[in-house]
């Protein structure tokens, strides 16, 4: 179902202030933030795989995923701090815990997760304090899924039209994409015999991600347009096709060919990264053009038949 360049929605008439945008373009820097979104997903799901591997006695899988979890969390934190206007004040993230702020909640997920996944990986690699290491691993595993999906709340809880409209699907896109990435990475680095769960995780994740992403891209109405046209549109299509191809390869050759598994894994990871950049760019695009803010709001007002939203 390739989608051409043509937007689904015809040009619309609306007034604006000299065509200038109404909301501000998000100030998050690229690649910092899209990378952080990817790494969060990778680390979170890797921690889950790691627990599974530990419980099911797959030492190779456990080692790779523990390192992936710790490494992903650490790299993600660096990306997040690098994106700050005043990096030296990163500790202020833990000043308060605000449920109304996904980034505040996220900080209280990322911080412990990084510690625990780091400890688990360190203990696993060095063999020191194995029981504590295992306990830390469990903690990381528990925090994994929230870490992988809270980032969707980070984008969904903004006024950026493309993100806010997709706030119901984004968690599944990010969760699926995270699983796909963790599975993919493991498929690359873990011998076939221990990579079964990774393959299954990747396949399932991919399915969830594609379903959720397509429901965003194919949504009726103007706000889906940023996901269809321009760079974001291309990125979303590349990601979807990549993921689909990787899944096909995994299903057919995944179990038999170490090379195929690795290639599929890599494609999974790449597609996951591309999805994040696609969604990020779509958001920026929807902020830059006032029509994505004005027209849907006008439609919403019309739907409420101009009830006294604004006292005349």
């Amino acid at each position: 179902m390739a989608r051409g360049e043509a937007p689904m929605v015809p040009d619309v008439e609306f007034e604006s202030y000299y065509g200038r945008q109404i909301i501000k373009t998000p100030t998050w820097k690229t690649p910092d933030v899209p990378l952080y979104l990817f790494l969060g997903g990778l680390a979170g799901c890797s921690a889950v795989l790691a627990e599974g591997a530990a419980l099911s006695g797959r030492p190779e899988l456990e080692r790779v995923t523990r390192l992936a979890a710790a490494g992903g969390a650490a790299a993600g934190t660096v990306a997040l701090v690098h994106d700050l206007g005043r990096p030296e004040r990163f500790l202020n993230m833990l000043r308060v815990l605000k449920p109304t702020s996904p980034l505040s909640v996220g900080s209280f997920i990322l911080a412990p997760f990084s510690a625990l996944s780091g400890a688990a990986a360190a203990s696993h690699v060095t063999g020191l304090l194995p029981r504590l290491g295992r306990l830390a691993g469990v903690g990381a595993g528990v925090l994994g899924p929230p870490l992988a999906t809270y980032t969707a709340a980070l984008l969904g809880n903004t006024v950026v039209p493309a993100w806010h409209e997709a706030h119901r699907e984004l968690p599944f896109v990010f969760g699926g994409s995270g699983a796909q990435a963790a599975g993919g990475l493991a498929m690359m680095l873990v011998p076939l015999d221990q990579a079964g769960p990774a393959r299954r995780m990747a396949l399932a994740g991919a399915a969830v991600e594609i379903a959720a992403a397509e429901s965003i891209v194919l949504r009726r109405g103007l706000v889906a347009e940023p996901y269809q046209v321009g760079t974001p549109g291309r990125l979303m299509r590349i990601a979807r096709n990549g993921t689909a191809a990787a899944s096909a390869a995994t299903l057919l050759l995944g179990r038999r060919s170490r090379l195929a598994s690795a290639v599929a894994g890599a494609t999974y990871v790449a597609a996951s990264v591309t999805t994040r950049f696609g969604i990020f760019e779509a958001g920026l695009a929807s902020a830059r053009d006032p029509k994505y803010t004005v027209v849907p709001q006008r439609e919403r007002l019309a739907r409420q038949d101009g009830s006294a939203k604004m006292s005349r």
């Binding site: 979170g44 799901c45 889950v48 795989l49 627990e51 599974g52 419980l55 099911s56 595993g141 994994g144 899924p145 929230p146 992988a148 999906t149 809270y150 969707a152 709340a153 969904g156 706030h167 119901r168 699907e169 984004l170 968690p171 599944f172 990010f174 969760g175 699926g176 995270g178 699983a179 599975g183 079964g196 769960p197 990774a198 299954r200 995780m201 399932a204 994740g205 969830v208």
Partner: peptide, 18 residues
């Protein structure tokens, strides 16, 4: 709510995977 569902889904995937 949807983040919760998705997190649960990921956890589910994890369990299912093993």
């Amino acid at each position: 709510k949807h983040v919760g569902y998705a997190a649960a889904a990921v956890a589910g995937l994890g369990v299912a995977a093993f």
